[in-house]
Amino acid sequence: MTSRVALARRPSIHDVASRAGVSAATVSKVMHGVRTVKPENVRRVQTAVAALGYRADPLASDLRRAKRRIIGVIVPELESEFFGTMVTELERLAEDRGYSLVTATCRESVDREEDIIRRMHDWRVAGVVLAPVRDEHGPAASYMKQHSMSGVIIDRVLSDDIFDTVSADSSTASIEVARQLVGKGHRHMLVIGLGSHAATSKARIDGFRAEALDLAPDCRIDVLVAESQIGALREAVRAYFDRGEHPTAVYSLFAKGTLVALSEFRRRGWRCPEDVSLIGFDDAEWMQVTWPSIAAVVQPVEAIAGNAMDMLFERIEGREGQPTARLQRCDILLRESVGVSRHGQPTGGEEQATPPVAD
């Protein structure tokens, strides 16, 4: 009976050491890839590991180090391809370094964002990659600063005084979108988005508006931005079109907004790009395969994830100094949904902006 109980428990590092005839310290070195161990001892340890089915206990070793080999990731949501792909890439990069990834979504709630970062601090994560609901001044970033946590802020941020930051160059991308649309004769354009307080939303709107008006002072730009609920944006867009507005181009600041706009076009029998042009920030598979294919601003997900992880591990390993702010260039793919305006120049000449939508 005693033998069966012994076999049922999880093999320990001491079991491996006993079977291989070496010390537990030698087993630990082999498991961590230390190259100074004698080849014969490496072989014996590996044979014992295979025979016993031994797996290292990460909790036990992490407790000895005071911090676990865990990276925490907080994102607003996982429904979009952008954040889904981002988390997948961050997980791969963490595992390449021998770390595990724990991901949580704050569901676009700053209160939940704060609750999650408190829990991650309790778990003694080695570091955090934070994509905040709004910007670098939110509760999670503030809590990380107060408790001297290692972290990198990505996406909805431009720069920070404590943490390294990585995001897409939203302003430059939106400037290029404005150039393309104005260059194709569009003079009445609608911008739709979500989260007016987010740093990236503001950068996209401001960059687009400033460039369009600089190139064509007579153009009209309408802006519809809901705070957090896609349903509120959908209702606002529908009401906008119902009262007779017909811009020649729509620029959506996020992928779901692009789908909202396209759905409203089809309800009214409008064709892209004959009746209205459409371009969205963030690419998605459906935008590539639908007809017509939808023009998109493509964010460099892999570059953002790679830079974020490189900077995070540098901080974990003790690098000091001023924080670095990195902006990654986006690509503009003008697919079939963008064409030359057939509606001519609007009259009036003054920019018009609808008020932000409250939800």
Rank of each mutant, 00 (worst) to 15 (best):
E317N: 15
G244R: 06
P292W: 10
F241W: 11
R220E: 14
V301R: 01
I316S: 04
G257Y: 03
G306M: 07
L278A: 00
D283A: 10
I221N: 04
S293N: 07
I332Q: 00
Q328A: 12
L333H: 14
P247A: 06
L213G: 01
D275M: 04
V276L: 04
T258I: 11
L224A: 08
L259D: 03
A305S: 07
W291I: 12
A210W: 00
W286L: 07
A296K: 05
R267G: 05
A295M: 06
G321P: 08
I304E: 01
F254P: 01
T258F: 05
D242P: 07
C272E: 08
T248G: 11
I332W: 02
L233E: 03
Q299A: 04
T248S: 15
S337Y: 05
A210P: 00
F313A: 01
P323N: 02
G269M: 10
A284T: 15
S252M: 07
R271N: 11
P217G: 02
V237A: 00
A210T: 10
R267A: 13
R220V: 15
L215F: 07
R209A: 09
Q299F: 00
N307F: 11
V250I: 15
R266W: 15
Y251N: 03
D275A: 06
R335M: 10
E235L: 12
Q229N: 13
L312D: 05
L262M: 12
Q328D: 09
I230H: 14
